[in-house]
Design a protein around this nucleic acid. Structure first.
Lengths: 208, 208
DNA sequence: AGTGAAACCGACTAAGGAGTCGGGAAAATA
DNA sequence: TATTTTCCCGACTCCTTAGTCGGTTTCACT
């Protein structure tokens, strides 16, 4: 017999509320009681379903963060159209949700990596795995682009991937406080310049 | 009578040790006692010199972080040579310290912004001020570059600045766990591509 | 040496945290 | 209906933390 529906419903409520608070206030700065209070649940309920706060958090990553990152940042670039257009649209959409202050899972990842780095190896392992999948997806999308002639053949796919991930995570940090919409616009505009520079050039071969 | 030397020495010791621990473990995850223990000092000493943990932290930002960010990220690009070269070298150097796992103040800034965002307005005010100075410096450097013909006149200086800040903060996050040296190399290589794309278009007398 | 201020000590308080546990209610099963 | 299983309650323990405070040491200056 599968997991009881009631059990799953409670676990789900705990996780979504937990993620929302962890994102808002940080993991170490959010107590289990904070989450419980918001749901009018008790300590007993929490520890009936989860071994510990850490276990709880890891399940949140696996169940919520990973899946959202997949659907927002990974699946959209797995198509077979023009690679750079796919990535452009993907970033555009992801940043748009950020502008509206929704829970933005790309940034959730960035936040948590910063918070747990050097502090919790186990959690970092899970977060790094998500990053790795993102990276691999980008790399193969770029290689597809090279193959299809949308990207210069001399370009280092790995390098482009790193650069894209960097700039995305960075802009999310910068969008947090100041003029998110304007910054998003400027960022996307510069991203297009960058993409232009890695498109095939008929005349030159000064790449490496 | 000038501020007692002893007082200043103790405050300095507290601040450098404090920053080092805050950077390593995070602000909320580092107790005042942690810092005191490392210096074999007592609670009394700490609260004799500082009003609160928050006050202490803000003084660290003002005294250590701000000055280091200036000397590492701001002053180096205030020169009058080729703008994009200045920025390239500046990033190169800043990332090199990161590779060697030294206390990297550019990243300190990134870390703290992530940690305090939405949680402590006062601290964020101070951190944002540092960011703002960095941004302004970048913008005027880029405008100088446009004026000197090193950068295309149609480029949005503000956009370039945002893009640079983003990518720098992002790569620092990515360098934390995985292959920092390789990632730095790839990042710098892509940065040069990007710079190429914002140089003046026509192969004129300027760029060759 | 004597004195007052500056610098520091460390036990203490109050608050809040994670995790425990005996028990009770609700739902499933017999 | 009776009984077992699932789910949840909330008081409790033990621990850590920021901040306090009365007291002691160190230092500068006479």
């Amino acid at each position: 017999m599968e997991k009881s529906l009631k059990r799953m419903a409670t676990m789900q409520r705990l996780q979504t509320t937990g993620l929302s608070l962890f994102y808002e206030k940080g993991y170490y700065n959010t107590s289990v009681d904070d989450i419980l209070k918001r749901l009018s649940l008790s300590k007993g309920a929490f520890y009936y379903h989860y071994e510990s706060k850490e276990d709880f958090f890891i399940q949140i990553i696996e169940n919520l963060v990973v899946r959202k990152v997949y659907s927002l940042l990974i699946e959209p670039i797995e198509g077979h159209e023009h690679t750079l257009d796919l990535i452009t649209n993907c970033f555009e959409n992801a940043l748009e949700t950020a502008v509206h202050n929704e829970l933005d899972y790309g940034f959730v990842l960035n936040n948590f990596i910063n918070e747990f780095n050097g502090r919790n190896e186990l959690v970092m392992k899970h977060l790094n795995e998500v990053l790795k999948v993102w990276e691999v997806t980008l790399v193969s999308a770029i290689q597809r682009g090279k193959f299809n002639g949308h990207i210069d053949r001399h370009i280092d796919a790995e390098g482009v991937a790193i650069f894209l991930m960097s700039s995305f995570m960075g802009i999310r940090t910068l969008m947090v406080e100041t003029a998110p919409s304007a910054r998003k616009y400027r960022f996307m505009s510069q991203l297009r310049f960058y993409f232009k520079s890695i498109e095939p050039k008929q005349t030159s071969q000064y790449n490496q």
